[in-house]
Amino acid sequence: MIWQQLLNGLTLGSTYALIALGYTMVYGIIQLINFAHGEIYMIGAFVGLFLVVNTGLNIGVALLGAMAFCMVLGMLVELIAYRPLRGRASRLSGIISAIGVSIFLSTLMVLIAQTNTRRYPDIFNIQTFQVGDLQVSSLQVIILVVATLLMIGLQLLVQKTRVGKAMRACSQDLEAAYLMGINVNRIISFTFAIGSALAAAGGVMVGIYYNAVWPYMGTMAGLKAFAAAILGGIGSIPGAMIGGLTLGVLEILGVAFLSSSYKDAIAFGILILVLIIRPQGIMGQKITKKV
């Protein structure tokens, strides 16, 4: 029973982790809570759905299509709503602008798709395996594998490539990176693109897993993913992964053993408790005050 819950929790948690990565990467570089990120995830789910239903594409191709679409969208949002504020406004103005984008995108989706919940067509032929006491659906396996591959890919990108090195430099010190000749705007744009693509992948997979896609799905998922990023220690990429998985598992366990009517409160309750005990999050660095 507990192993079953653990598996379900890991599946949910891996999608939180995918969204949390976008929050944490953007935050790491420009200290902005990108509240529009949840909407990118939602739009990713819709684009994937559209591609599967209207063009009959293979789901793998649709997933890549949704990721590509959201990459562009993420870069566009950064260009229009955040870049003009950079360097001449307080961080709070950035947050308000992000909230504006979030309201805009979710309303736009309501206008396009109406508020009713849509479902992915039944094309997957989901199978369930029995492993000991465990019920494992092929969908869970696919989600876990895809999420793991994406996270490994991200880790390689950040640690091994030139652009990854530039990203790390920017998150250490944006100004110094600029002085070292790094095209900071391009790196920020790239960060938004990568984060948005991961969120879109999360959106498509959650849409299929829970069989529901609707315009307001991004709000709560976004808040919880942000909570996961904070839980892991915001700015830390491994932190976002661990935070996402932890939150997913604890939420499922909480629902199983406490009460499902408090589902949305459990994640936040855990977050508050962790932050009271460990204010910098699980993987976050303790910042010594610089005087």
Partner: peptide
């Protein structure tokens, strides 16, 4: 307990607290 948290961590705690109240 929470006001010793830095800026955006506090933002998250306040969001979380309000959500807990709402669910309550």
């Amino acid at each position: 307990p929470t006001l010793r948290l830095e800026g955006d961590y506090l933002a998250m705690v306040t969001i979380g607290f309000a959500e807990i109240i709402r669910v309550f």
